[in-house]
Amino acid sequence: MKKIFLTLFLILASLQLSSQDLLDILELEAPVTENIVSATFKGTRIVNGHSIENRKNKELEFIISHRFGRINTGFEELFGLDQANIRFALEYGLTDDLTAGLGRSSFEKTYDGYLKYSLLKQKTGANAFPFAVSLFGSIAAKSQKAIAGNERTFAESLFYVGQVLIAKKVNSSLSIQVTPTYVHRNLATIAADPHDIFALGFGTRVKLSKRVSLNAEYYQQFQKLTSVNARNSLAFGVDIETGGHVFQIILSNAITMVEKSFITETTGNFFGGDIHLGFNLSRTF
């Protein structure tokens, strides 16, 4: 009797073994894959400054950015809406990791060109890596005619910017970026103005819903232009994504949208009401 029970038990146990859940077997058989973290930021800009995001291979993006005048100019200027600085740009993905851009801003009739390269990617799974690193370099040329007696050479109209973008997508709703920045200005208006300015940028994105996020960005300068009494730039933005468009609404104490300018030439006091309303609108082709 005892033996029969034992035999039955063993047969049952063996049946149990063979009916092990099929999905569990698949779980065991699944290869460990390398998983590149994507969409750390929605757009190629956090607010004014670049994010680690690149345009993908052969993608062309047309960006129109706009900054109105200061909100505290009052009703006569319709809270800044009477003035505007506009930048048009075409940005193109040469490869998945290398983006080139050309832009033109109405402020000081500035042309700018940049290259951005994605050096390291944040990864999970196999070959996990905790953050992403991109390199950014740009040249800007001011083309506005100088007032008589203040003429400058072409070389004196040039500005160079180098940035190391270090970003981490902490979870699906929070991303952060730290951006060491170097700006070189060929022309110093007065002797007290530095040619070289170092700055450290901080940026973040908090997702409010699947297609809407809140962004903030701050650049701390370590040298400042005394001729214009420069301040650190602070900006807040809301990203709204709709299919191939990303629409960003921005509040910033800077009126410009190129690195050399909003990082080192911002004069507005955000908390004194020197706030510019603006937007970035991008369309990907």
């Binding site: 999905l23 698949l26 994507s38 993908k56 993608e59 990907t284």
Partner: peptide
Amino acid sequence: AIAILMKSFMFKKALMQEHFNE
């Protein structure tokens, strides 16, 4: 039984793939 990793779906447009996953 079938198990499908969603991130392994490949699209022609990278942006579509990102939107699909995100």
